[in-house]
Structures are given as C-alpha cells and as structure tokens.
Amino acid sequence: MRLHLLALLSRGPAHGYELKQDLEQLLGAAYPQPNIGQVYVTLSRLAKSGLIEGEEIAQSSRPNKKIYRLTVAGTEALNAWFEETADEPRARDDFFMKLALASHTGLADQIGLINRQRREYLNTMRTLSKLSAAENRDNRIAQLLIEGAMLHLQADLDWLERCQEELEGPR
C-alpha cells in the first residue's frame, strides 16, 4: 500500500480518508478495500521514512486534519517503482508447496487438495462475475482488474487440471 499512497499523493496533497476513498473509487469492489487504520499507519511510516510530510490543518467545527504531500525522496521512490517490472512468477506458490509436501509427508491427499482448490477458484470466479456485472461500466480500471483476476484464475484452473492429469496418470 505504501507505493499506492505515494502515487495518489503525486496528484497533490490529501488526507488519509481522501486517499482511502480514491483507492476505493479507482479500483472498485473487486479490490480488497483498504482499512482506514492501515492507511493512517502506512502514512505515518511513509512520513518517518521521509517519503512524505504532513501538515496539521485547523478546522473550525471539526478536529484538525493532517494533509500529506510527497517529498523529493517520495517522488524518486515512486518513479523508481514505475520503472520496475513485476517479478511474480509463482515458483513459491503456497498451494504448490502443499501439493508437493502432501505426498512427501503423507499428511494430505493431493487430489483432494486439487479439488478443494478448484472449488475455491470457481467460487471466486463466480463472485468476480457478479462484481463485474454490478460494477459501474464507466470504471474501466475496475473492469480490467476483474478481468485480469479472472484470467489468472482460469490459468490456475488449467494448471490444476494439468496437475491432476499428471498425478493420476501412469508412472
């Protein structure tokens, strides 16, 4: 969430609740909604590390609010993040480790694990389909997020099928 908040602050100063609302509006219902406490804790850490600075703003009928803005170091960190590529090959996937260790330890049935994971992926796809239908069609970012998640799930389902074929096939 650190870099997400920095990116939002690149548009101009904002307080924590505004940043939370911006994320929710941008990403829609398919993306896990940020907890406001998590937003403020992250903002505090960003300030301590010198990536943002905060300023108390007095309000007449409400408690003071803190407005945050990027520092030069924050802008540099954000630019570096946008230059990086995502390195997420799933070689360290938790499910795969369960699958590999199931037969090695005798603690679980591999096909049972595959079937449970398949059901979970299918349930998630149904949920995403409903969210896609309910999501505002004008929010292209949210639609792309849902579509990407569904394509990843389909690839995961195909991979589960491949695992099952391999494990049930002749040795």
Rank of each mutant, 00 (worst) to 15 (best):
G12N: 09
E56L: 12
D22Q: 12
Q143S: 13
A30Y: 03
G112Y: 05
A133S: 11
V72P: 02
Q25P: 08
E120D: 13
R137P: 14
G148F: 02
K98H: 06
G74P: 09
S103I: 08
I141S: 07
A134S: 07
R11P: 01
H152C: 05
A77C: 13
R118H: 01
Q38I: 08
E120K: 09
Q117E: 15
T71H: 01
R90P: 03
P34T: 01
A133H: 03
E83S: 14
H15L: 08
R92W: 10
H152F: 10
D156S: 14
M150Q: 10
N35C: 04
N123V: 07
Q143D: 08
I67T: 11
S61C: 04
D87T: 13
P89I: 15
R118D: 05
E166I: 01
K20R: 13
S61W: 03
Q33L: 11
Q154F: 03
H15R: 09
A30G: 04
G28E: 08
G37M: 04
Q59P: 00
R119A: 12
I52F: 00
Q164N: 10
L51Y: 06
Y31D: 06
I114F: 02
P32V: 11
V41E: 13
T105Q: 09
G37F: 02
G50V: 01
S44E: 12
R11K: 14
A58Q: 03
G37K: 14
E120C: 06
D94C: 11
L70C: 05
A102C: 05
L101M: 02
L160S: 05
Y121Q: 11
L153T: 05
Q21A: 13
D87L: 14
